[in-house]
Amino acid sequence: MAVYVLVRLLQGILLVFLMSIVAFCAIYAVGNPISVLVSPTTPQSVIDKVVSGLGLDRPLHEQYLIFLRNLLDGDFGYSYVTGQPALGMVLERFPATLELALTAMVIAMLVGVPLGVWAGYRPNGVVGRMASGFSMLLISLPPFWTALLLIIVFSIEARLLPTGGRGEVASVLGISSSLFTQDGLRRILLPAVNLSLFPMAMFIRLTSAGVRETVSASFIRFARAKGLSTGRILSVYILKNIVPPVVTVSGIIFGMLLAFSVITESIFSWPGTGHLIIKSIQTSDRPVVIAYLMFSVSIFIVINIAADVVCAVVDPRISLSGSR
């Protein structure tokens, strides 16, 4: 198992490395990065100074090596807009995104999984059909539209919840999060619900399909032939069978959430990395964009590896050395 994780990590590092080349080429080799920083009326001498100051007059491969060396030092350059270290800006905002994504994930699972299990067990009942219609609806609604809807209903009309921003942060057991304050809870509710809609639909479909498949499986018939109670069959035999696919998908969904949070964060002014990347793209703040991309890719890889490992632990049929 350790070997497997190691191999995957190495593959991941290779991937990040490749990503860095792509990012570098695109950011520094395409277009004129200076155009953002200087106005058209700047005299050439000033432009030249800026160029040499940023090392942009050196040959490309030299620039890349400098770039790489800086990366390994943790130096992703400085934001064109704020002048702060790019990576620092990303890391600073990551906890907010993590908090939002985790909350959304929890909501999605708490609602989606039980609903899906019930729908799968009794697909033709009221719950079953409503659940499948509901999940189809959720997938079709674009997240920015649902955000608008939520804001209209809860913030503007009902005046119940604020429209944006993150709440106050409190520290419990060394972890600081806005979930621990009342103000924080009020503010995280709408964005978290909005973000949870898509994964919720995924969970409903996944668990209901899984349960439906399992119910008709012959080992369920054998279990009934043994005289087991419905309760035991449902809770152990059926549920256990859907855990592996749910776990694998959870990992992937969580990774997607980190990416999809860009919309929700933008609309609700949630100070996370998603909000940052959008602003950076709009202002062509390239160092921050690179920092965000490298960071996201790394996180993504780690999550995928973790999901695979958890899956292997839960399902004894999977052996990580490759033989199934």
């Binding site: 012959s218 080992f219 069978n241 399902d315 004894p316």
Partner: peptide, 13 residues
């Protein structure tokens, strides 16, 4: 008892 014991027994228990 049924045909095909592989599918009669629960794979994860």
């Amino acid at each position: 008892i049924f045909q095909d014991p592989m599918t009669s027994l629960h794979p994860l228990l």
